[in-house]
Design a protein around this nucleic acid. Structure first.
Lengths: 366, 366
DNA sequence: CGACAAAATGAAAACGTTTACATTGCGGAT
DNA sequence: ATCCGCAATGTAAACGTTTTCATTTTGTCG
């Protein structure tokens, strides 16, 4: 009612062309014109209400509500030189290893008034480069990266624009590259120690592709180092590098089960591969943990609910997201580089690992 | 070398203040100045290279590379009146039911040159409202929503800015609200029919909170209608509404297992609850599927790998994401409202459901 | 009632692009 | 030589804000 009257009283002086296409944006100018004030006053009403006379303020606010004014964050960003967005880059969203991580970042950012732009690289360097460029074009105020190893070109690009960033899921040795993470190497050592102390000596490895994934690389390195330190030594036959898929874990396990002598345990460097491996054992009648101990990594929510529940490494995905965000936002505020942090991991012992003594002797399947 | 010479020859006229804070943005103006051309020519070089003389073009491009120029998408958006972003709103990212969906949207958007802004509502209406507002401020070119039922206020807000949107995961009856989805009701009917045709008559339900989740509502409605149609009728004791957590499915199942006479099957309206329910059965020594058939919904990737593999409803999460994006992008291009679409679902029969005949008689646990 | 400080408001410049329109320069047709 | 047309380039106005500085209004005190 009211707004109809006002609208007819004051005719729009702006071009009416957009009308037809339905894209009539209500701007601060329109509000100002209707209220009979300048745009500065409207802006102040919205951002610093105490600076405008209550009477004027109320009149303006009424019109703002009436016309469903929504400010244009793009224009604001342009002048304020802050986009209010944070870019986050993860390798994959499927299987939700990164879901909790992303969620905690989104939450922390939301609370601080930031919006999150997520990029998914699918473990591809070229895609990552493209995505980073796009985020930088969008003038993200900060960047959360997964892993540390990547072409120097990307870091150069980011640095060149002075955009603060933190890496995660991998502790950085380079002081120029801040990281908020847990120690993959140490955690994997713990995992191996767990298997070792159960009496396992012949231990297989199923991990991600270590050439394009530094988390996989570190976990594999720990596996090899551990075996070397225990004077066992690693064996190429017992090491499988696979893509991040249930079916790959399954295939890797099938292959390992054909090796003679058969190992008594397998360290899967992520839970997805571990669940796939368990599936293979079930299909082939290999009892877990009696015939084969399986150790996972990540503490994916579902590992508690598979049969048997999986022994794994709990990684602080949520707190890592939260801490990385805090560190990044503080860096944005202060102008200093983000603080690094190393978070702890835990071995979560469930039912997929058991002492070697319990092992049943069994004919080879093939 | 070359740029050092050029840089020293022409001193910067822009304010040098930002230098110290590290936020020296290389603009089109700088490039233009260094190349000795106008900004228009630089802009043309970048966006319509054929319009500028090869010689000039190469000179400009060299400087662009040299100075690591990155265009400011915000400024571009402001003048082009297109942000190049799509907003996507989902209730949760944990447990990855929506992961494939999000991923396919991101992929389709990426290919079309759009960036995705994701919002997570945690099943909260007020949070959804807040997130939508924030996305609208960011001037998203389109919006993908999950579910249809929400306060009219949100739709009003979106419509008011003329932003095209599609809803997903729920077929809309309202012609003003386009949806690209599958039919939860029909799919649930299929699920019930599957159990019924195996001989099950006493069937329990574990579903999400139907008051704030229209997918849960529809699935529950189908459950009730099916039983009514078969003249069985539903029973409040056998219907549990739970939050989206493994542990909730577990608790619900425990409760249902105490009901006398015990049902022979349970329809879980999502896989997360189903896996939780299976866990409860395992803990209590209830054999699945011999003593209890469990039917899931969603075909979460892990359902294939739990023990026993879960019978479930395959929903077209990926193609829904892709189709919704296509429909939305076309709407953005044409200015017409997005086209609706109904996608098919399938019953995926695995090992968690079996005919009632196989049922072993067993003492009550308590 | 006048003066003056404080409060309220306005004008205009910036933010970094794109683009319509204007200008320039050049080759070829007359 | 003159003119035309076209290609190449430049000028300047947008886009929707915030913010500095100037100006006007208000209120207070002597």
């Amino acid at each position: 009612m009211e707004n109809a009257r006002l609208a007819s009283k004051k005719r729009s002086t702006r071009k009416e062309a957009g009308r037809a296409s339905g894209r009539t944006q209500v701007t601060i100018h329109e509000i100002a014109r209707e209220a009979g004030v300048s745009i500065a006053t409207v802006s102040r009403t919205l951002n610093a209400p105490e600076k405008v006379r209550p009477q004027t303020r109320e009149r303006i606010l009424a019109i703002v509500r009436d016309r469903h004014y929504v400010s244009d964050a793009l224009a604001v960003s342009l002048v304020s030189r802050r986009s209010g967005t944070i870019g986050v880059i993860i390798p994959t969203i499927i299987y939700s290893i990164y879901a909790g991580f992303i969620h905690s970042i989104q939450k922390a950012c939301g609370e601080a008034g930031y919006t999150v732009l997520t990029g998914i690289t699918e473990y591809s360097d070229t895609l990552e480069d493209e995505i980073v460029t796009r985020l930088l074009e969008r003038r993200v105020d900060g960047l959360v990266l997964t892993g540390v190893s990547r072409g120097a070109g990307i870091y150069h690009k980011i640095r060149n624009l002075g955009v603060p960033f933190v890496t995660t899921w991998h502790v950085s040795k380079n002081p120029d590259i801040p990281s908020v993470s847990f120690d993959n190497y140490a955690a994997s050592m713990d995992a191996m120690q767990h298997l070792y102390s159960l009496g396992h000596r012949r231990i297989a490895l199923i991990c991600g592709k270590s050439d394009r994934n530094d988390r996989a690389f570190e976990r594999r390195r720990a596996y090899c180092d551990f075996l070397r330190r225990k004077r066992i030594g690693s064996n190429a036959e017992l090491m499988e590098e696979r893509d991040f898929e249930f079916s790959e874990g399954e295939a890797a396990m099938r292959k390992i089960l054909r090796v003679e002598p058969r190992p008594s345990a397998v360290f899967c460097a992520n839970d997805i591969l571990a669940v796939g491996a368990m599936h293979a054992c079930r299909d082939l009648g290999v009892a877990v943990p009696a015939d084969m101990s399986i150790m996972g990594f990540d503490d994916h929510p579902v590992t508690e609910h598979v049969t048997p529940p999986l022994t794994t490494i709990r990684v602080p995905a949520d707190s890592m997201g939260k801490e990385a965000t805090r560190s990044l936002l503080r860096a944005i505020d202060t102008g200093k580089p983000p603080a690094s942090k190393v978070l702890r991991t835990d071995v979560v012992v469930r039912d997929s690992t058991a002492p070697t003594g319990k092992r049943r002797t069994r004919r080879k399947a093939s």
